[in-house]
Design a protein around this nucleic acid. Sequence first.
DNA 1: ATGGTCGACTCTCGA
Length: 261
Amino acid sequence: MKSIQIATFNVNSIRSRLRVLEQWLHKNPVDLLALQETKVIDDLFPVDFFYDHGFQIIYRGEKAYNGVAVATRFEPIKIYFGFQDGEDPLADTRLILIQTSQFFLLNSYIPQGKSIDHLDYQYKIRFFQRIHNWLKKDFTSQDPLIWVGDMNVAPTAIDVANPEEKKNHVCFHEDVRNIYHNTVNWGLIDLFRQFNSQPGQYSFWDYRERNSFRLNIGWRLDHILCTPSLSKLAVDCYIDKEPRGWEKPSDHTPVVARFQF
DNA sequence: ATGGTCGACTCTCGA
């Protein structure tokens, strides 16, 4: 038996979050860390930070927006960026799939969508549809697949503060929740919900909401999903709120899963 | 209340 820890963290700029990451990794020596919103072009990505912490680092970014990375102690056999259908090159800075000897890991930064009447919201809906199609085409629910990231969806009413006020929000609207659930129901389990049933467990608090963290006015948008063969090996999944108390925190906080392989 | 988001970037957008 080998204990494995993986985590997902929307850092909201990798370069602005190195001190937080340094502290967090010191206390949480995870085996794989999936990052979103790195907000930096590849030439300026702080690769040495990850080498110094014993990781291989896989990353794809752009100027100012988006950007994803996977820091891993597992040897990746294959690495893919974006959708494999070649129809949406913009997704290269939102999706990384890695294959290791023990599992596949998909790291995603799902488009936020701006507003339900904005074209970006239609793009978000199509983005989930494309992931769903990809899962159906290239995987079965018997495969060892982990899908993590900032999904920009609060799956149910217990995953957002004041849900009755959020019905027209792009992260809680019924259409996006339906397509999210359809995609997940392809064969994935929400690992956080396998271990926690309480409402009000959030991974994101809007900077613009006054005292949102202190008052716990937040959203659970960051998820770790996996197929049943892996969920059976999971021993815990939790949201680590500690970094929100540190200097210069991200608006998101890490979600961690532990497995016994 | 002498004020109340943050990050990247060129001044405004995205979240």
